[in-house]
Amino acid sequence: MDFLSPSTWEEALAVKSAHPDAVPIMGGTDVMVELNFDKHRPPALIDLTRVPELTRWAPEGDGVLMGAGLSYTRIIGELAGHAPALAQASRSVASPQIRNRGSVGGNLGGASPSGEAHPPLLATDAVIELASVRGTRRVPAREFYLGLRHTARAEDELIAAVLLPRPAGPQYFAKIGTRNAMVIAVASFAIALDAATRTVGTGVGSCAPTPIRAVEAEEFIAGELDWDGGSPLAPGAVTRFGELVASVARPIDDVRGSADYRKHALSVMARRTLAWAVTDHRKGIEQCA
């Protein structure tokens, strides 16, 4: 196996173009597991740890452009205000050691439906920047996941960055695991309220072949919310939201949990995170008033 070590972004893109079946490696928390267990024998690895752009973030417009290799630890420490749901999701990733090395780029590259970063990216309408020697393009997260471990990224492209829009309302992430830390999601959910556009975003993990949105639930609850007045949601509306979120799930029975439990847990998480978000939103209105 070849180990390719580009030191600049341009060089990395050239290497990927020349070796489209080479696997990029950054923290190695996903790639190395696959290699160690002999699941894959890629012809080459492209070590991206020397490319400085990948671990930087900077404001762009209202939001933040985050290098794809920024570690979860730094997301928690530096981006909690810019991307609350993503920071909460990052906090639930594995262990401190893994969070020091793992990054959103790895989640997007592997595209496992259980990746913690996906639901927040969907809920907040984040945008993924892909690059190759052919040029750079931006794909909304909502159009990125195409099938089981299959994404919009072309073979010769590297994942460069993620554009995180400025939060315009409360965001929450919740994840089910059968122990209290260091666990792969049995089901996960993210919600983002956007008071500016009066829309609600959602993201669902581990409940379908790809990360998905619950569009009907988003539209339903956006219509039910008292965006300006801050009156509480009718309990029936919260329940209905949970049902609509669960209805998009197409989960499987596996060693981590049963399909029925996943749907059940999803509806509970949807209700709870919605309640937290609405409470925050109402508090915000009260403070303004």
Binding site: Q88, R91, S92, Y172, F173, A174, K175, I176, G177, N180, A181, V183, A185, V268, M269, R272, A275, W276
Partner: peptide, 13 residues
């Protein structure tokens, strides 16, 4: 809380 940092409960249930 049950669920820990995966943030599934703030006391509910």
């Amino acid at each position: 809380l049950p669920g820990g940092t995966a943030n599934t409960s703030h006391g509910e249930g």
